Amino acid sequence: MSASKIVKRFGISIAALALVGTGFTGTASAASSDCPEGWFCVWHGTDYTGRMQKVQYDNADLSQYTVFANGSLSGYNNGNNCDVNVYAGRNYTNLIATVKRGTKGTGTSTRVKILSNKWVNCI
């Protein structure tokens, strides 16, 4: 599969992750609350299950973090003032999507590698 097709697939997946239902009940709601205020968090499983990893600053290389490098399936931008750009490549390359502040996604069936992130559109 070509790099552009992979990036497109990742883009579709993260967009789906960011747009999947905003109303949560039960376990999903409680687990997303594990993401500290001011952070962008991702979980290895859908519905905020499995291992969680989080970032608070711009990161040019997230490959050292298991959940980001091996595919994230649910996420939450709990940032205070900013949206977060997520990238399929290191050093802010191959933009996947901009995840708006406050956006939650319970997951998709397609894994999404996030290898860098940058906080943007800060107010």
Rank of each mutant, 00 (worst) to 15 (best):
Y87S: 01
S116K: 08
T98D: 03
K118I: 07
N91D: 10
N85S: 10
D83K: 01
V20M: 09
V67H: 00
N70S: 06
S109K: 14
S109N: 14
T66P: 00
G89Q: 04
Y48T: 02
I14T: 09
I6K: 11
N94G: 12
W39V: 06
S116A: 07
C122D: 03
R111D: 13
V7R: 11
Y92R: 06
T22N: 12
E37Y: 11
A97D: 06
A60N: 13
V42N: 01
R90K: 12
S72G: 11
G107C: 02
G71P: 03
A97K: 03
T103R: 11
D58Q: 07
W39N: 08
F40C: 04
C41W: 04
W43P: 00
Y92E: 03
K54G: 09
V112D: 02
G23A: 12
V86R: 01
F10R: 11
V86D: 00
S72A: 15
A30M: 10
Y87K: 02
A16M: 10
R9F: 15
A69Q: 09
K100N: 12
C82W: 01
T25C: 06
P36K: 05
Y57F: 14
A30C: 03
I14A: 06
R101S: 05
D47Q: 13
N78P: 04
E37T: 14
V55C: 02
T66G: 06
L62G: 04
S33V: 09
A16I: 10
G38T: 02
E37R: 05
V99H: 00
V67R: 01
N94H: 13
K8A: 15
W39Q: 10
G102M: 02
S4V: 13
L19F: 06
C41N: 01
S13M: 10
T27L: 12
V84G: 00
N121K: 02
N81D: 12
L95T: 04
Q56P: 05
Q53A: 05
M1V: 14
V42W: 02
T66H: 11
L62A: 04
G71T: 05
S74P: 02
G107R: 00
L115W: 09
R9T: 14
T108G: 07
R90A: 13
G23D: 13
R9S: 15
V55N: 00
V55P: 00
S4A: 14
A69M: 12
S2M: 07
V86E: 00
G102I: 01
G45R: 01
R9E: 14
K8N: 13
H44P: 04
F24Q: 10
Q53P: 04
Y48D: 01
G105C: 02
Y48A: 07
S13C: 08
I123A: 13
Y87T: 05
T22S: 12
R101K: 11
S72M: 10
T110V: 15
I12L: 15
S63P: 03
Q64A: 12
V42F: 03
Y65I: 08
T66Q: 07
G107T: 05
K113L: 14
